[in-house]
Design a protein around this nucleic acid. Structure first.
Lengths: 237, 237
DNA sequence: AGCTATTGTATCATCTGGATACAATAATCG
DNA sequence: CGATTATTGTATCCAGATGATACAATAGCT
């Protein structure tokens, strides 16, 4: 069975995978073998597969992640997204032919994912030789329109931040309010007043207080919390 | 030149076109020749054409509309969107063969458009024999997943309503605050307090008061306004 | 034991939005 | 022709949310 029969031609998907670590918002970026080409993890859609399922599969195959918060944010359909040239350059470097199937123009559906950094166990695939978390403010130049994709994904994330309970996907099960606040601040790109943030978050009645945290630091220990999803999803903020 | 060379295979796009008239939010729906099949206006993407341009073109070709507020809202990639069956049924009714090209599974990018009802001059295409504005609450059963598309488009519209200056695309150049309020109410699906709506809208500093309206009605005449887009797009609501 | 950095909570002022009141006014009706 | 009616424009009161500041509690350090 050839590629054309197995996958839908001229459509791809790419994933902007967000993680949070050391007070920084990070994106998972692949580096192609024997090259300085960086790209987002992406893949194709099988003929007998739902688009959204394909995204889950691609994410799994290329990064080992499963059960991830994953959502479409935009479909990139520029005539000249740059793939062909880039693919060729990469193929030259690697002394391989680009399959004819890949020569054509592609339309790519962009997904963004939110993952718990601490749970990620990266697996490498055949073409990429490194796969790293990179601070959103220190991204290298990415292949094709992938830089635009990250920008657009972040924009969507900011917009949806206060519409859905997204942030908790970026945190471990248990966390402090200070950590939670840091996530908000990093995504929004601005600082928030600690006391008011605390009041607001607690008033939402979505956090379950667990116990005191042993910090080992020379100051009062904060409480630990767990996200407690409310039954009534209707109202928000 | 055959279809396969001209258009990207297995990708389509569909448009949910919103208009406002007689205090109702309406959607433009096509009815196929010799059938009871209703569908959204849609089309395909040329090999040498941007996705978003294709949407503008399709809109133009099928409805005569140009310069329209048009935006992606979701990409529909269910394995079984129902096209094949529906296409066949329609083809049978019309004693025509479905081109092989169309037999395959399609992924469709959904766009929504906001148009000034008063400016629309509908033109019919070859396959549809009627093209009507239908109240969003009185839609017939639509082909494939188009009913879902309308629902998702409306959801997006509601979300973006307070993020961007969308509503004014649905109104003529000049309007009263009462008319503006009616648009908000219809989209949001609930009534708003007149006095507070007026205060809020005027405080945003986006309306230019023109003159008094001669109504011919037995009561105080309202002012007319024009939308005055602010330079600073940053802050909103 | 006192110091320091941080946390948890209270409080005050300000802003925003819901609700009500009321004067202004353009036609119509008696 | 003045009273009536429906609607518009604006003011005001009140409750709840948010911004800003104050301060006591506390875990480890010196």
């Amino acid at each position: 069975m050839n590629l054309e029969d197995q996958y839908i031609p001229q459509i791809s998907l790419d994933c902007v995978i967000f993680g949070f670590h050391a007070s920084q918002l990070k994106v998972l970026v692949l580096r192609f073998k024997n090259s300085d080409f960086f790209a987002l993890p992406g893949g194709f859609i099988r003929q007998d597969e739902d688009l959204n399922e394909a995204a889950q599969r691609v994410l799994m195959e290329r990064t080992g992640l499963t059960d991830v918060y994953l959502e479409q944010f935009y479909t990139f359909g520029q005539r000249e997204r740059g793939e062909v040239r880039m693919q060729r350059e990469w193929a030259e470097v690697n002394k391989r032919d680009v399959p004819q199937w890949l020569e054509k123009r592609f339309i790519s559906v962009g997904f963004y994912a939110l993952v718990d950094f601490s749970k990620v166990n990266l697996t490498m695939d055949a073409i990429s030789d490194s796969c790293d978390w990179i601070d959103i403010n220190e991204l290298p130049v990415l292949m094709m329109d992938h830089t635009l994709m990250v920008a657009k994904a972040l924009e969507t994330l900011r917009l949806e931040l206060n519409q859905k309970w997204l942030v908790f996907n970026l945190l471990p099960e248990i966390f402090t309010i200070a950590e939670l606040q840091k996530v908000y601040e990093t995504i929004l790109g601005r600082t928030l007043l600690r006391t008011n943030f605390q009041r607001k978050i607690l008033s939402l009645d979505i956090l379950k207080r667990i116990e005191k945290k042993y910090t080992g630091k020379a100051h009062k220990a904060p409480y630990l919390y767990r996200f407690n999803k409310p039954e009534n999803e209707d109202k928000f903020y």
